[in-house]
Simulated scan of single mutants.
Amino acid sequence: MNILGISGSLRQASFNTALLYTARELAPAGMNITIHRLHDLPLFDQDVEEQGDPVPVTALKQAIEAADGLLLACPEYNGGITGVLKNAVDWASRIGKGRKVAALTGKMVCIIGASPGITGTVRAQDQLRLVLRRAGARTEPQGDVLVFQAHTKIVDGRLGDERTRDALGRHLQGFAERLAATAG
């Protein structure tokens, strides 16, 4: 089971990128998580798209298409999803030249998130689910992984809080089970 992990943060010391690396460490047997960076992804521009997808866009779409599912680490900025993550969804929701469907169409997505705030990333995750559904992705209710007060749980790029690690591991196991159930 190949999962594509994407962080909605570009920050080098991102809590959400650290959460993805922890997810990769805690992934259940048979689940392989590859992390795809968004640092080179241009802002969505239909004029650019009409000339053909830029190389980073093609790479993102191909990575999504090759994955069995997506694991999105969703930060919360000002009560919403980051522009970086929304931009990636916007590109991946487009069919583009030479394709029959958009990369996100029918793709199962699992959302996690970490924030220094006391509510985690609940508002951003809700917004992201709406955007993903509109883009044709599948975001069945899977519960939430809302790592609140992340600065106390993720130190030096590592999630050390055992309760949160256990919750993330269970969440990933549930995601694997849902993917397996829908694959056959």
Rank of each mutant, 00 (worst) to 15 (best):
N2W: 00
I3F: 09
I3L: 07
L4Q: 03
I6Y: 06
S7H: 01
S9M: 06
S9E: 02
S9T: 12
L10K: 07
A13D: 14
S14Y: 03
N16M: 05
A18R: 04
T22D: 00
L26G: 09
A27H: 10
P28N: 08
P28D: 06
P28R: 06
A29F: 11
A29Y: 11
A29I: 12
G30S: 12
G30T: 11
N32A: 12
N32M: 05
I33Q: 09
I33L: 15
I35F: 07
H36R: 13
H36S: 11
H36I: 08
H36W: 15
R37I: 00
L38Y: 12
D40F: 07
L41A: 07
F44R: 08
F44Y: 15
D45R: 07
D47A: 14
V48I: 14
E49K: 05
E49P: 03
G52Q: 09
P54T: 08
P54A: 10
P54I: 07
P56K: 10
P56V: 09
V57E: 02
V57T: 01
T58H: 09
L60V: 13
Q62L: 10
E65D: 13
E65S: 10
G69D: 03
L70V: 09
L71W: 01
E76I: 05
Y77A: 08
N78M: 09
G79P: 04
G80H: 12
G80D: 09
I81G: 01
G83M: 02
L85S: 03
L85C: 05
N87D: 10
A88M: 13
A92W: 06
S93F: 03
S93T: 12
I95H: 07
G96L: 02
G98F: 08
K100G: 14
A103Y: 00
A103P: 00
L104A: 08
M108K: 07
M108C: 02
V109N: 00
G113S: 10
A114C: 04
S115N: 15
I118F: 12
T119N: 15
T121F: 08
R123G: 03
R123L: 14
A124G: 08
Q125H: 12
Q125C: 09
R129F: 07
L130C: 13
R133K: 15
R134K: 08
G136Y: 05
A137T: 02
R138T: 14
R138F: 08
T139E: 06
D144R: 14
V145E: 07
L146I: 03
Q149L: 10
H151C: 15
H151R: 15
I154F: 00
V155K: 12
G157F: 09
G157Q: 10
L159Q: 05
G160E: 05
G160H: 11
D161K: 00
D161L: 00
R165T: 00
D166S: 14
D166C: 04
H171E: 04
Q173I: 00
Q173G: 08
L179Y: 01
L179G: 01
A180R: 15
A180P: 10
A183W: 08
